[in-house]
Design a protein around this nucleic acid. Structure first.
Lengths: 124, 124
DNA sequence: GTGCCACTTCAACCGCGCTTGAGGTCAAGG
DNA sequence: CCTTGACCTCAAGCGCGGTTGAAGTGGCAC
């Protein structure tokens, strides 16, 4: 698995090649090595991409992921606000989590109560 | 608070009036009563809209919210798969929750480890 | 009456996150 | 040699979730 084509890489993270090219153009993935004009990826690319995919699935925007990776890629100690950025991300992740938990509670409530309309539900 | 204009209603849920008109056009909110051509909302509208806003903040798409409300609005017992739909929603909410928790763990890991690049992070 | 502001409709536009299509290249298999 | 298929670039298009702008109306204060 030393080297992967864009198609193989895409298959590993369940994306389409077009999405990977898009991420590259968006500055999330560095331009990879090429052979015969075609992109060749390695294990590091795969790990970075996996991280991006996870972040996207957790609801982060492309812009946030980019800022994040950029902070991470910056020379360590070069005044990078990495820890602040990460901490802020933790906070927004937690906020999302809270919203979801709230909605979950509402759904559970609706399942329990026998009211006939959301607008009239007494427990809402 | 018996009657609300669209602007007042919007203020209560921190939306813009345009978003409320959009929801109405999208079939999430029933066309309200009018006075002098202007929409007039009551407490039931407010509760329904609050529910919609919460659902959106929890990450549900407009289409899902619509299907959901539609199932809820259907005559009770008329073969409405309400409980199934709600159960499915619970599952997707839980799935989102898991993704977020995963990402949170990754972030925490990154904060802990001192690696210099995401691609090289040993604990990823 | 005359501002003025919130409201009305309708169509057009926007940013996001990709996907799709046109038109071309490259490498392998028969 | 020829086809097949994955790849390349670049531009355009799409679905979502609204926002914005134009052109007009309602109702209240002065």
């Amino acid at each position: 698995m030393a080297e992967l084509s864009i198609g193989e890489l895409a298959a590993r993270v369940r994306l389409r090649p077009s999405a990977i090219r898009y991420y590259e153009a968006a500055g999330l993935l560095p331009p990879p090595a090429r052979r015969g004009g075609r992109r060749r990826y390695d294990g590091a690319s795969l790990r970075r991409l996996s991280f991006i995919v996870q972040a996207r699935r957790a609801g982060l925007t492309i812009a946030k992921v980019r800022r994040w990776l950029a902070a991470w890629d910056a020379p360590p100690g070069a005044g990078s606000p990495l820890r602040d950025i990460l901490a802020a991300e933790l906070a927004t992740l937690d906020a999302r989590s809270v919203e979801i938990e709230r909605q979950r509670a509402r759904v559970a409530t609706l399942l329990d109560c026998r009211c006939t309309s959301i607008a009239d539900c007494p427990s809402l």
